[in-house]
Design a protein around this nucleic acid. Structure first.
Lengths: 113, 113
DNA sequence: CAAAAATACCTTGACAGGTAAGGTATCTCG
DNA sequence: CGAGATACCTTACCTGTCAAGGTATTTTTG
């Protein structure tokens, strides 16, 4: 029961920002968290993930730095900025609006889980 | 409080099919219904609308015919097919799944309207 | 120990859906 | 008659996603 690609399009950035609210993290781990949270039903493709990081950093919503940890492959950590927190709040509001609208437009689904 | 473009992307076809479940209708009117249902917050752009009709018809999910009504500009009516009903049910299921996933991924929004 | 698998990063090219901008034609109302 | 609503449609562009490919290190396994 996987989800078709772009029914989530436009929410990717908010999803990533949500993860970073809990603290700095690196790409691979962030994606694993997302997979966990959805019970394996949804994960970002790597290309999508790193494209999003680049976009977010260019917009000043996150910053990044190389972790100088010992074991394992090198990791690039990401941190959310103050502007990122605002963008997250905005994205969250948008999701809530979207939910209301689509519920209204695709018949009354509110009752179903 | 309008909704940013492609947070609804991928649901357009389902939205249109939902309208056609209530009976045959033509483009302009369908879009007005959608605007009504969302309190003016969201309407399909004309290009999006007619592109979607074409796509849906090519996929056999709808059929179309010219209305031979007297007054007003000529209207092309659309009707949902049996395959269209199945696609609608599938699209609706997808929306319900999407909703669950995004609620899980963008923090706990379930409490908010 | 060597091979396989996992961890971890990144880029390129193509694709699909949405949209701005433009166009046509008819009808209604002042 | 002119403005605005009704009603349809196309083209060229933009943006986010993804398949496919690449690099490098560490851990597991046979």
């Amino acid at each position: 029961m996987s989800i078709s690609a772009d029914t989530l399009r436009g929410h990717t950035d908010t999803i990533i920002l949500t993860q970073l609210l809990r603290g700095d993290n690196y790409g691979y781990e962030i994606n694993k968290k997302i997979l966990e949270l959805t019970g394996g039903a949804y994960g970002l493709k790597e290309a999508t993930l790193y494209t999003a990081f680049k976009r977010l950093e260019q917009q000043g919503l996150i910053t990044s730095y190389w972790g100088d940890d010992g074991p394992g492959a090198r990791r690039r950590y990401y941190a959310i900025t103050e502007a990122g927190r605002k963008a997250w709040a905005e994205g969250r509001r948008e999701w809530i609006n979207t939910r209301v609208l689509l519920d209204a437009l695709i018949c009354n689904c509110e009752k179903e889980a």
